[in-house]
Simulated assay, not measured.
Amino acid sequence: MHIAFFGSSLLSSYWNGAATYYRGIIAALARQGYRITFYEPDAFDRQQHRDMDPPDWAEVVVYEPTVEAMQAAFRHAAGADIIVKASGVGALDNEILAATVAEAAKGKLGIFWDVDAPATLAEIDGDTRHPLRAALKRLDCVLTYGGGSPVVEAYRRVGARRCVPIYNALDPETHFPVAPQSRFTADLAFLGNRLPDREARVDAFFFEAARLLPHRKFLLAGSGWEPWQLPPNVEFIGHLSTRDHNAFNCSPLAVINISRKSMATTGFSPATRVFEAAGAGACLMTDGWEGISEFLTPGEEVIVINDARDVARALASLTPQRARQIGEGARRRVLREHTYNQRAQIVDRVLSELVAAKDQQAVA
Rank of each mutant, 00 (worst) to 15 (best):
A122P: 02
A122S: 11
E123T: 15
E123H: 08
E123I: 11
I124Y: 04
I124F: 09
D125E: 15
G126N: 13
G126Y: 07
R129T: 15
R129F: 14
L132G: 00
R133A: 05
R133H: 10
A134V: 07
A134G: 14
A135P: 05
A135Y: 03
R138Q: 12
D140T: 05
D140P: 07
C141K: 01
V142N: 06
L143Q: 01
L143A: 06
T144Q: 06
T144F: 08
Y145P: 00
G146D: 10
G148D: 12
P150N: 13
P150R: 12
E153P: 04
R156E: 13
R157F: 01
V158D: 00
G159F: 06
A160K: 07
R162I: 05
C163L: 05
V164W: 03
P165W: 02
I166T: 06
I166K: 01
I166Q: 02
Y167V: 10
Y167I: 05
N168F: 00
N168Q: 14
A169D: 09
A169C: 06
L170P: 00
E173P: 00
E173T: 15
E173K: 11
T174G: 00
T174M: 14
H175R: 13
P177D: 10
P177W: 04
A179Q: 09
A179D: 11
Q181A: 15
Q181T: 08
Q181N: 10
Q181I: 03
S182N: 07
S182Y: 03
S182R: 15
S182P: 03
F184I: 02
T185K: 11
T185E: 11
A186R: 00
A186V: 04
D187C: 09
D187R: 08
F190N: 02
L191C: 10
L191W: 02
G192H: 05
N193M: 06
N193T: 14
N193A: 15
R194M: 09
R194Q: 04
P196Q: 13
P196S: 14
D197S: 12
R198Y: 00
R198C: 04
E199P: 00
A200W: 03
V202F: 04
